[in-house]
Simulated assay, not measured.
Amino acid sequence: MMMIFGAGYSGQAIAAHARAAGFAVAGTSRSADRLESLQQQHIIPLLFDGMRLSAELEAAMAQATHLVQSIAPGSAGDPLLMLTGGDLRRYFPKLCWAAYLSTVGVYGDHGGAWVDEETPCRPVSRRSVERVAAETGWCDAGKRADVPVAVLRLSGIYGPGRNGFVNLSQGTARRLVKPGQVFNRIRVEDIGAASLFLSARQVSGIFNITDDEPAPPQDVVSEAARLMGIDAPAEQAFETAELTPMARSFYGENKRVSNRKIRNLGFQFRYPEYRASLGDLWTSGRWSG
């Protein structure tokens, strides 16, 4: 059985690929209101508030052979590591592989230069600092339990229901221009496929899960508008835009993220660049989710 802590957008994509591969899948949510949705996706629904492990939760953990931790850490640390004391063998006696979902934000700002898994982390935001600590905690826990742990550093996630088409249709899309700024992206289905690829091989280590083409964010909005047959929003200088502190912090980090490491293992991204991916979402009608 595969157990996914934090069966949200990415977790559900991983669950879909796992079920297609023959796994029974259990997934947690903080909200009781979302348990029915998980059940409809044939995911065994479990409530987890990040504060305690229920008897039902511990029983499922004891049966898990594969684990995915998708819950973001907080200032106190990774909730699952804290509640288990990092003792994977005690709480997951059947475990043979685990994954921790992290972010390319751990690299910090590199002025638009290319980074890979060997690039030293120099996180800027508090949330990225917390991610680096969680990555280290999971790798250490895996070593103590003799369980391979893969750290998946994800770039900007999009896919059905979360994309430029949705933003344009809701009138929330903006084309903010900051000269030289680029971002990588990742289609959510490729997160699911990469997770199953690594789990099947019981691979450990750090992997960038990202597309091939870091690109200016305004170009992605323009392409979505072109496919919709509508005018793109007017360009707006980043300096004059009203943004939340979190949104503004993303623009403080500029880098090009390489995915060569996982491709060298034989993995092929189904959606390696945004143009074909957006075209697929639009023509299939799946953009709306």
Rank of each mutant, 00 (worst) to 15 (best):
M1A: 13
M2G: 05
G6V: 01
Y9D: 14
S10R: 04
G11H: 02
Q12V: 09
I14A: 07
H17N: 13
H17R: 15
A21M: 09
A21Q: 11
F23K: 10
F23E: 04
F23C: 12
A24W: 03
V25R: 00
A26N: 01
T28L: 05
S31K: 14
A32M: 07
A32K: 12
L35W: 09
L38A: 03
Q40W: 07
H42W: 11
P45F: 10
L47C: 09
F48D: 00
D49L: 07
L53V: 10
L57Q: 08
A59K: 15
A62E: 04
Q63S: 12
A72M: 11
P73Q: 05
S75E: 13
S75F: 00
P79C: 06
M82N: 12
D87T: 11
D87Q: 13
R89G: 12
W97N: 05
A98M: 09
A99I: 06
L101Y: 06
S102K: 02
T103I: 08
V104H: 08
V106I: 10
Y107R: 05
A113I: 03
V115P: 11
D116E: 02
E117T: 03
E118W: 14
P120R: 04
C121I: 05
C121N: 13
R122I: 03
R122H: 14
V124M: 12
S125V: 04
R126H: 08
S128L: 03
A133R: 14
W138S: 04
G142W: 06
R144L: 12
D146N: 15
D146V: 13
V147N: 07
L152C: 14
L154I: 06
L154E: 03
S155H: 12
R162Y: 11
G164F: 03
V166M: 12
N167A: 15
S169K: 13
T172W: 05
R174P: 05
V177L: 06
K178W: 06
P179S: 12
P179D: 14
G180R: 11
V182S: 07
F183N: 04
V188M: 08
D190G: 13
A194L: 05
L196R: 15
S199I: 04
S204T: 06
I206R: 05
I209T: 09
P216I: 02
Q218R: 01
Q218I: 01
D219Q: 15
V220Q: 09
A224R: 01
A232E: 14
A234T: 07
E235K: 01
T240G: 04
A241Q: 06
T244Y: 04
P245R: 08
F250S: 11
F250G: 09
N254T: 09
R256I: 00
S258N: 07
S258L: 01
R260S: 00
L265C: 03
F269P: 06
Y271I: 02
P272D: 08
A276K: 10
W282F: 15
G289R: 09
